[in-house]
Design a protein around this nucleic acid. Structure first.
Length: 477
RNA sequence: GUCCCCAUCGUCCAGCCUGGCUCAGGACUCCAGAUUUUCGAUCUGGCAACAGGGGUUCAAAUCCCCUUGGGGACACCA
């Protein structure tokens, strides 16, 4: 039997890390098994629907590299299907109309909760005689359809990641399958669609685990064979609570903006709850992950979301990506920071990126780490300038090196180093005594790539100009 | 309140199913050392955990029970 899985987001907001991981695991499983991924938009909550959410979700999935084979299907376009099966259940006595208003239910729920009773529906409308039902129908107009839970027995199933799970029917209440506006609830639409789309494995978040017995009962009532279930434990925020919009950086688009590579995010996400055999953490490609992925090695404990490791993974991916690709991806960040004049030589830009790409963890960091390559003029922070530039011999050393560089025809890394070594030797000082001040003079900071590479890329004019500025400061005190 | 799930370093995972090879392994972070052309780069090293209690067994991180803690569900949300 061909594997068919689905990702079923509801368009109430952006795709967050948890949803992305669910989508990823489904996709990985499908690709590993040579199966199909179906995308289904569960838009039955009309009230909470956010405009533009679907487009954003699809865009984020594509960016991550998750491709689907069918869909996107929309549940609101399939209403007649759900109505058909709801009527069938009604006809077979497996479901019934309920006339209780939301307000009444709310009052009863709160009352039950304060008394310490289960807050679920008490099943009163099931008792209604035909006469009473008619009367209520006329008086209220609005009604929902509820599924009738069998009084006795239990539902047991084997979850693919957790093993055997059992729920007594006594803890289940008759739940709504069709709302008063004729739109199905998630729990029902989900079952009807999974059956109709021939889904073989339902891989979803842990929060749906307790919905499973209800859905299994629906499968039974409709005479359908249920799919396999695999419930992924949740991703929690650093506070140990469910991820929310307030938890911090959880929207996928934030990661895109910050300059995380999609392959790196995939690598990180898959490690949140899954591990290959052995102790590999970095993968050569998403293809490799697909090949190794299996539901068997998914862990059942919830993960706390912490991005330190993501930064490390992303840094690795940036480092090993080729320079042309990273340059292309980095350009927008430079443009946004107004660092590009537009007349930069492409080859020169690539060399700059080559130098920086081993040290940045996020593409956006190019601005704070490498702005001095692009700025016409750099400024020096006073405290650092005081400590780096104001040593006795620094002024002479800078002057001597400046003079040596000004004579250069070939402004190359090798030549720049040769001259520096000579100045160092002649003055009888340590390498760092010249190199640190020069680095600071040219970049405005005390850390960065190799100095002579910087000099060569900066070019003669800028290098001499910045040295002059630094010498002025050194003299000034 | 009731039901369900979960419980190994600060964090992510391995080991658990099929007890002994484990005074528990890897990675991130952090710390130290090295490189002396810096470090946010690199290399080397270090700190650091089986939630608690009871069983079962010659032997338990591994199996069972209880307690505690965390999470989820119990909506005309998904």
């Amino acid at each position: 039997m061909k594997v068919r899985v689905r990702f079923a987001p509801s368009p109430t907001g952006f795709l967050h890390i948890g949803g992305a991981r669910t989508a990823l695991f489904n996709w990985l499983f499908a690709r590993n098994k040579g199966g199909a991924l179906i995308l289904r938009v569960e838009d039955t909550d009309v009230a909470r629907a956010a405009s533009g959410a679907v487009e954003k979700i699809l865009e984020d999935l594509k960016w991550l590299g998750i491709t689907w084979d069918e869909g996107a299907y929309f549940q609101t376009e399939r209403l007649s299907l759900y109505r058909h099966y709801a009527e069938l259940l009604l006809k077979n006595g497996k479901a019934y109309f309920c006339y209780c208003s939301p307000e009444e239910l709310d009052v009863r729920r709160k009352e039950a909760l304060t008394k310490g009773n289960p807050p679920g529906y008490d099943g009163r409308c099931h008792q209604l005689s035909t006469g009473e039902a008619e009367k209520l129908k006329k008086a209220r107009g609005k009604r929902v359809i509820r599924f009738k839970i069998p009084h006795t027995g239990a539902t047991e199933f084997t979850d693919l990641v957790r093993g055997k799970i059992r729920f007594n029917h006594s803890v289940l209440e008759d739940f709504v399958i069709m709302k008063s506006d004729g739109i199905p609830t998630f729990i029902f639409a989900n079952v009807v669609d999974d059956e109709n789309m021939e889904i073989t494995h339902v891989i979803r978040g842990d929060e749906h685990l307790s919905n499973t017995p209800r859905q299994l009962l629906l499968y039974q009532a409709l005479g359908w064979q249920p799919p396999f279930f695999a419930h992924l434990s949740m991703i929690l925020g650093t506070d140990g609570k469910k991820l929310s919009k307030r938890t911090g950086a959880v929207s996928l688009s934030w990661y895109r903006k910050e300059g995380y590579l999609p392959e790196a995010l995939v690598n990180y996400l898959v490690l949140l709850g899954w591990a290959p055999e052995g102790n590999q953490e970095l993968f050569s490609s998403t293809k490799e992950i697909i090949k190794k992925f299996s539901l068997k090695r998914i862990s059942c404990n919830p993960a706390i979301y912490d991005t330190k490791k993501l930064d490390w993974i992303n840094g690795n991916y940036i480092k090993r990506s080729n320079c042309k690709k990273i340059t292309m991806l980095i350009k927008p960040y430079l443009e946004a920071a107004n660092l590009l004049q537009g007349d930069e030589d492409e080859g020169w830009l690539e060399q700059v990126i080559e130098l920086e790409k081993g040290r940045i963890k996020r593409l956006s960091q190019i601005v704070e780490y490498g702005d001095f390559f692009f700025l016409p003029e750099i400024s020096y922070e006073k405290d650092i300038a005081n400590s780096v530039l104001l040593r006795k011999e620094t002024k002479e050393l800078l002057g001597a090196y400046r003079a040596a560089l000004s004579e250069l025809e070939d402004f190359t890394k090798e030549e720049a180093e040769k001259r520096a070594r000579k100045v160092i030797k002649d003055a009888g000082v340590k390498g760092g005594d010249l190199i640190h001040p020069v680095r600071f003079a040219l970049t405005g900071r005390t850390v960065g790539p190799g100095l002579f590479e910087i000099i060569a890329l900066l070019g003669k004019k800028k290098t001499l100009h910045r040295l002059d500025n630094a010498i002025k400061i050194a003299k000034g005190c």
